[in-house]
């Protein structure tokens, strides 16, 4: 049995150790907020936090998550909406939205370590693909959050 904490709850799973975390989340635990986009860790649609760090769940074997704590988009907000989600709604960021769970999780990790990121730091941290091209609004929303946190 593989044990880990997912969104604050301990879970024990009988899965192959090499099964990527994404499929543990989506098909074993029913947490469908994290998406499959490429399966090779390059598009970022599957981004979740493991012990607070943004990781690509589609290439992270479940065995490497044993004993660790996973947070998905479903539990990003402590209560109603996380400030990032509020900013995303206020600035109407998503289009098709399929990338946005991963995008938001990447942004959350970035802002946790770098509350006032420069454009270069944003570019560095956000390798997430948005096929609809919402990058302009993603950047704008991050700067708005940074400005908000300065107050």
């Amino acid at each position: 049995m593989l044990e880990m904490t997912v969104n604050g709850r301990p879970v024990a799973l009988d899965v192959e150790p090499e099964m990527p975390l994404l499929w543990v989340l989506r098909d074993e635990l029913g947490l469908t907020g994290s998406k499959y986009g490429c399966g090779i860790g390059v598009c970022g649609a599957c981004t979740v936090h493991v012990d607070g760090a943004a990781v690509r769940a589609c290439v992270l074997p479940a065995s490497e998550v044993a004993g660790r704590s996973v947070t998905t988009i479903e539990a990003l907000a402590a209560d109603d909406l996380h400030p990032i989600q509020k900013a995303w709604i206020a600035l109407q960021v998503p289009q098709c939205g399929y990338c946005q769970s991963g995008m938001i999780m990447s942004v959350a990790a970035l802002l946790a370590s770098t509350p006032q990121p420069s454009d270069d730091q944003i570019d560095e941290a956000l390798g997430n693909i948005c096929r609809c091209g919402t990058y302009v609004r993603v950047r704008r929303a991050i700067h708005a959050l940074a400005a908000e946190s300065k107050k």
């Binding site: 469908t32 994290s34 499959y36 989600q85 709604i89 998503p94």
Partner: peptide
């Protein structure tokens, strides 16, 4: 006016065909 579909697209609650259970 704000788009109807946006809030669920920020929380992971939006159900795409990939998410049908």
């Amino acid at each position: 006016v704000p788009r109807f579909d946006i809030p669920d697209k920020t929380t992971g609650r939006q159900i795409y065909a990939a998410d049908v259970r």
